[in-house]
Design a protein around this nucleic acid. Structure first.
Length: 875
RNA sequence: GCGGACGUGGUGGAACCGGUAGACACACAGGACUUAAAAUCCUGAGACGGCGACGUCGUGAGGGUUCGAGUCCCUCCGUCCGCACCA
């Protein structure tokens, strides 16, 4: 019996079945059934897109979350740990086009596959709360939220609204493309040159919360990764400055265009202004272009470089002199020529600037090219006003104002303040805060998404679909045999009667961006069957999510959208708080070596064998026997073929091995290199623990009896066991799983070391340490833990056991080993009683032979004693 | 260009508040068991010098603060990520 190998794949199926039958991980409905009075813990990982099969990134994500969920359950929390599917999206439509399979069928087949794969991982998930966002039972509530956002006004404007926006239009596919579908200015599928078209689109007014989303980051910072907070701050892009208006001269202009408004953060430098520049899309440019073909051509040219970002950043600054001039507001005799310039973006500020070349690099480049004057108005500290000159680099640092009349001598901030007040007094400008973030464009001209529940009526305009008519369901009978949005050319679906006047009307055929689906799913899990989007009681108990875990790639969009949506749902009375995720953790990716055959084809790890090690490692193709080049370690991807299928690992080694590999060695937030060697190592550990527990059982210690007195061996083992359990718990809570695993290994060493000893109370201690070991591995290797628990003679489930209480007295040793330094250099160490005082330690240290030798007879100047830590003898 | 993160043995990594750098693991070497191998167990190991006790050096580089720095401060180098003409 003792030498039997643990058959992980078989036993794992068994325990999964037991958990399933007993409903071990089913979370009780808080509204009716749970009366436990336990504190709650909501553990959530980003739900997957059902792309087809589970990949290692999923395995990592859900393992990390499951360890936390299982640990918290053992710690006495009432845990909510749900799973669902981010099921709308473009790949389903691509599959429909390429393989003639309906998006719904494709999606649900993938969900079935992936659900069974996730179940094989042994995740402690309440599968009864599962939902897919493509289910009308889910999106009906999303449509309701949309209608509430449509109605709700924040600062006088509705949260959902329509306006025209530029979209990427593929003239061959006859459809709108997402930015990532535009490659080098061409449609990814058709290869046609993409046009910019104006379409009326739906938006969420996320900018209404720009300031709040920014401010609240300070409160999230301690429990969110720094980089996520900084990226969100940059994305929101707050800048404080002023709007100012310039009178225009030189041509007859319509009233609206007679003044040019600019946004600036450097209103202090107005006396250094030497030109004005407006965007090619500015109304003034459009107006002038009507009667000027040359300008019209220039505008078209500007628009072209707008498609590739790389070119955009490097493109040479170009301008077109309109012949119009702006009057300097403080020096009426100074006229500033107005250019249409390719580096001014319409979407930011007012789409127009005044150029101050001395203190802005872009303006300087432009001024040098078009021969505009460069007058410094800020003098760096210590520089001489008479000789200070701008060369090829603009001065953007601190300093005092010069050449600026009434601003002279002021520091930049003071000058800005004075200038802003002056603008306001004169009525030609005002203080202004600008944000880079734009409103969230949620319209998608796609079939496989949540329909936007409005109706367009010739007489009543935009009419919301009445709540009782929801959901607006997607029609099933659609075809993908021609380009464009199937909803648009469906023969019947969009034709309806107007809910207001009863006349003929048409449905909105746009569907929602799938980021909408994932912006509130975390709340739906708290009451997945509620008749309203959220259930007050359930939400009050469970929300917000205590620990959210997911990929770094969602640092901005998904997390920012979810934060906005929570605010919107608060404004519409669906939730009572602002932030959806109390604590956020971003995991690293799974990477693997790449392999290429002689003719450059990528090969999968399964198609090759490797021999040797270090620089002698050689890879060979299994099918051809030819040498294979071992390439860089990269993110697992289908295109590089460096993928390992989780199913293969689970089938041959078991889920616990995969889970252990995921959590050992690499810190969860860093990238993890998947290697065969590492998997084999994890598998060995699984077997080692199984054997140790077997030995523990053979040893036949009893723990149910009263604790005996303990000899030194037993005491040492008990200390190790209690320290381990304590450390493992702390490290799991801090998501430092790799350190927790290392501590578990230390306990296995202590246990196997004690196994061939004997001593007073040792059998008892071995039994205790064995049980602690099983408890400690529970969150990470739950199947093995159940198997060991049963082997220890229990007929209960380990998953239902509380985390054992540690005895505080066993966490500290009676004696401590402290280092002894001479002049900061370690010379020896000594073991003293923990309670030893400074004087005692000092005398003992000075007596040490190594210390005496190092002193070389020199007089001791000072002795620094830090009890329990270190002694430093200074000479 | 701007912003962020990181840099520790052959490798992944550990080191709470500044207090014995290298826990734990992988790979490696030696040994035990075996006819042999696999599996398993034990031992060794940062580098350099020395038979040895031991000594010197050592956390990307340089400087600083301190009795004491992987940890704090400054400068530089490198890697990765995000944003990218944002006025």
């Amino acid at each position: 019996m003792a030498t039997e190998r643990y058959d992980a794949p078989a036993r794992e199926k068994h325990w999964q079945q037991v958990w399933n039958e007993k409903g071990t991980f089913r979370t009780k409905d808080i509204r009716t059934k749970d009366k436990s009075g336990k504190p709650k813990r909501y553990q959530l990982e980003m739900f997957p897109y059902p792309s087809g099969r589970v990949h290692m990134g999923h395995v990592r994500n859900y393992t990390l979350g499951d360890v936390m969920a299982r640990y918290m359950r053992a710690k006495g929390f009432n845990v909510l740990h749900p799973m669902g599917w981010d099921a709308f999206g473009l790949p389903a439509e691509n599959a429909a086009i390429e393989r003639k399979v309906h998006p719904r069928k494709w999606t649900y087949e993938n969900i079935d596959t992936m659900r069974s794969q996730l179940k094989a991982m042994g995740l402690s998930i309440d599968w009864e709360r599962e939902f897919a966002t493509c289910d009308p039972a889910y999106y009906v509530h999303q449509q309701r939220l949309f209608l509430d956002f449509l109605k709700k006004k924040v600062d006088g404007e509705p949260l959902a609204y329509r306006k025209t926006a530029k979209v990427n239009w593929d003239p061959v596919e006859n459809t709108v493309l997402a930015n990532e579908q535009v490659i080098d200015g061409r449609g990814w599928r058709s290869g046609a040159v993409v046009e910019q078209r104006d379409l009326t689109q739906w938006f969420f007014r996320i900018t209404a919360y720009a300031e709040d989303l920014l401010q609240a980051l300070d409160k999230l910072q301690p429990t969110w990764p720094d980089f996520v907070c900084t990226q969100q701050r940059n994305w929101i892009g707050k800048s404080t400055g002023a709007n100012m208006r310039f009178a225009l001269e030189g041509r007859k202009l319509p009233k609206k265009l007679q003044a040019l408004e600019v946004f600036t953060t450097r209103h202090d430098t107005i006396f250094g202004a030497s030109f004005m520049a407006i965007s090619a899309e500015h109304p003034l440019a459009a107006h002038l272009a009507q009667k000027n073909e040359e300008l019209a051509a220039f505008i078209v040219e500007c628009r072209k470089i707008g498609t590739t970002e790389e070119a955009l950043a490097k493109a040479e600054k170009k301008g077109w002199d309109t012949g119009i001039v702006a009057v300097h507001p403080f020096r009426p005799d100074v006229k500033l020529p107005v250019y249409v310039a390719n580096f001014i973006v319409m979407g930011y500020g007012t789409g127009a600037i005044f150029g101050c070349p001395a203190h802005d690099q872009r303006d300087l480049d432009f001024a040098r090219k078009y021969g505009r004057p460069v007058v410094p108005v800020v003098l760096p500290p210590g520089a001489d006003a008479a000789t200070f000159n701008i060369g090829s680099e603009a001065y953007v640092g601190e300093g005092t104002l010069i050449n600026s009349e009434f601003l002279d001598g002021l520091m930049i901030e003071a000058a800005k303040d004075k200038m802003a007040s002056l603008l306001e007094d004169r009525g030609i400008g005002e203080r202004k805060v600008n944000y880079r973030m734009r409103d969230w464009l949620l319209s998608r001209q796609r079939y496989w998404g949540c329909p936007i529940p409005v109706i367009h009526c010739g007489t009543d305009g935009i009419v919301p679909v009445p709540v009782e008519d929801l959901p607006v369901k997607l029609p099933d009978d659609v075809t993908f045999d021609r380009p464009g949005n199937p909803l648009d050319y469906h023969p019947a679906w969009k034709h309806v009667t107007c809910p207001k006047c009863g006349g003929a009307a048409v449905r909105e055929t746009d569907t929602m961006d799938t980021f909408v689906d994932s912006s509130w799913y975390q709340f739906r899990f708290t009451a997945p069957n509620a008749p309203t989007p959220t259930d007050k009681k359930a939400l009050k108990y469970w929300a917000p999510v205590d620990q959210y875990i997911g990929g770094k790639e969602h640092a901005v969009l998904h997390l920012l959208y979810a934060r906005f949506f929570t605010r919107g749902m608060k404004a519409t009375k669906h939730v009572t708080f602002d932030e959806p995720f109390t604590s956020m953790f971003t995991q690293g990716i799974v990477v693997h070596e790449t392999y290429r055959s002689e003719n450059g084809d990528w090969l999968t790890p399964a198609e090759i064998t490797i021999e040797g090690d270090g620089i002698n490692r050689k890879a060979t193709s299994i099918t051809t026997g030819r040498p294979v080049e071992i390439g860089a370690i990269e993110k697992m991807s289908k295109s590089r073929k460096n993928v390992v299928d989780p199913d293969d690992i689970i089938a041959s080694y078991g889920a616990d091995t995969a889970r252990l590999f995921i959590v050992s060695d690499s810190p969860p937030d860093r990238d993890i290199i998947w290697t065969d060697g590492g998997v084999a190592g994890a598998s060995r550990q699984v077997q080692r623990i199984w054997r140790i527990i077997d030995q523990v059982v053979e040893r036949n210690g009893k723990r149910n009896s009263k604790s005996p007195s303990f000899g030194p061996e037993a005491l040492a083992l008990r200390r190790a066991a209690h320290k381990t359990l304590n450390g493992v718990g702390q490290n799991i809570e801090a998501l430092r799983y790799n350190v927790a695993v290392a501590q578990i290994y230390e306990l296995t060493h202590a246990l196997s070391g004690a196994m061939d000893k004997s001593g007073e109370g040792l059998d008892w201690a071995i039994r205790e340490a064995g049980e602690f070991l099983v408890q400690a591995i529970g969150p990470m290797m739950p199947h093995l833990a159940e198997e060991c628990w049963a082997r220890l003679g229990y007929n209960t489930l380990l998953a239902e056991q509380p985390w054992p209480a540690v005895e505080p007295g066993l966490l500290v040793d009676d004696t401590v080993t402290i280092a002894v330094q001479v002049n900061g250099k370690r010379r020896d160490e000594m073991t003293v009683a923990r309670s030893a005082g400074s004087g005692e330690i000092e005398t003992a240290a000075l007596r040490l032979e190594a210390v005496v030798r190092a002193l070389e007879g020199r007089p001791v100047k000072k002795v620094i004693v830090v009890p329990q830590r270190i002694v430093n003898v200074v000479v």
